[in-house]
Simulated assay, not measured.
Amino acid sequence: MTVYRLGVLAGDGIGPEIVSATVDVFKAAAYKVGVEIEWIDLPMGWEGIKQHNDPLPEVTTKALENTHGWILGPHDSAAYPPEHKVKLNPSGALRHTLDLFANIRPAKTMPGIKSVVGEANLVIFRENTEGFYADRNMFAGHGEWQITEDVVVTSGVFTRKAVERIAHAAFKMAMKRHKKVTIVHKANVLRLSTGLFLKVCREVAEQYPEVAVDDYHIDAMAAHLVRRAKDFDVIVTENMYGDILSDLAGELVGSLGLSPSINSNEKLAMAQAAHGSAPDIAGLNLGNPTGIMLSTVMLMEWLAERHHDSKLEEIGKLVEQGLYQSLKDGVKTKDLGGNASTSEFAEAISERIDQTVLS
C-alpha cells in the first residue's frame, strides 16, 4: 500500500490553528478509508525566519520536491523584516520556483451560507506564472523599473507555452463538468498580450470540439459574474485577472474567507486557501478553517487522479460532506455568525466523518 507523504506548512497568524484543524480532520477521514498519510511539518513564514532566517528556507523547498503534495497556510509577509519584504512572498516563490502554473479556484454555494448570487458552481483557471504580475513573470528580477522619481514602468509577459498549458487544463476540467469554457481577456485594448492569450485559447479549444466556448473582456466579465454567476462553468484567464475574478466570485457565493484553491503542475500540487493570515485573531482559536479544508479536498482529488487511487478522492468526499453537514446543522465559526471555535468546528466535522457509513 502506498504511503502518501504530504507537507504541512502552517504559516503565520491563524495558519497554525486552521492547518492543524485541517490535518486532524483529514487524519480521521484517511483512517476511515484505510489510507496511510505521513504528515511532514516544514518551516515557513515567521517559523522559517526564526529557524533559518528565511520565510521560505531552502530545506523546505527541497523537502517539498519529495512529497506527493502539501498544504500551505497563510503568510503575513507584510509584517516580515525589511530584508525579507523585498523577496517574493512564500506562496509566490513556491509557484514560481516549482512552476505551479495552474491556480484553480472554485466558487460554489454552500449549505447554510448566504450567497448574493443564488446558486452557482464555477471554477476559475488562473495562469500562475506570467501575465501582469511583475513579481512572477521574470527569470530574474521583478519586472518593474522606476525610471525617475515620478515614473514607473511595469511589464507583462505572455507566452504561447504558458497559455497552451493553462488552456488545456481548463478544457480538460470542462470535459469532466458541463463542457463550457469562458475565456477572459482584454484583447480590444491589450491587443498583443491578451490578444495572444485569447488567440491561443481559441486554438486549444479546437482540440475539444464537445466544449462550448465564449469569451468576455475582463470588465464585462466582472459585471456578468455579479449578474449571472450561475451561467458560468469553467473560466480561464491570465494571472492578475484570475486573482481579481476569483476573489470576487468567492465573495459573491459566501465569503472570500471560505474560498479554496490549489496550485499545480503535472507533478506537484499545493493546497492554499484564498484568504490571508488574520493576525488580529491569531492564537484565539477563532479562525475559520473552511477554505484550507476545501483546498485540501481539492488536493485529494488531484492526487487521486494522478495516482489512480479512488480512496484519496473518497477521503476528500468524506471531509467535504462532513463540513457541509456541519454548516447545514448550524455549526459555524464566529465569522459566519456562529459560536464554534476552530477546534470545535473541526471536531464536529470529524464526528460526522466517524458516523458516515461507507458504501
Rank of each mutant, 00 (worst) to 15 (best):
T2S: 13
L6F: 01
G11N: 09
G15W: 03
S20E: 14
T22C: 09
V23F: 06
D24V: 00
K27P: 02
A29N: 00
A30N: 05
E36V: 12
E36I: 12
I37W: 02
E38V: 02
W39K: 01
P43H: 05
E58T: 15
A63F: 06
E65Y: 09
N66Q: 13
S77I: 04
A79N: 13
A79C: 08
L98I: 00
L98P: 09
F101W: 10
K108Y: 10
T109P: 01
I113T: 04
E119F: 15
A120P: 04
V123K: 04
A134V: 12
D135K: 14
F139I: 14
D150M: 11
E164G: 07
H168N: 11
K172P: 00
H185R: 10
K186S: 05
N188T: 14
S193W: 03
S193Q: 09
A205L: 03
D215G: 06
A222P: 05
A229I: 03
I235K: 01
E238N: 09
E251K: 11
P260C: 09
P260D: 01
N263C: 15
E266R: 12
H275R: 03
A278P: 04
I292A: 05
S295I: 05
E301H: 13
S310P: 13
E314M: 14
E314I: 07
G316F: 02
L318W: 12
Y324D: 10
Y324C: 13
A340K: 06
S341V: 03
F345C: 10
D354P: 00
T356E: 13
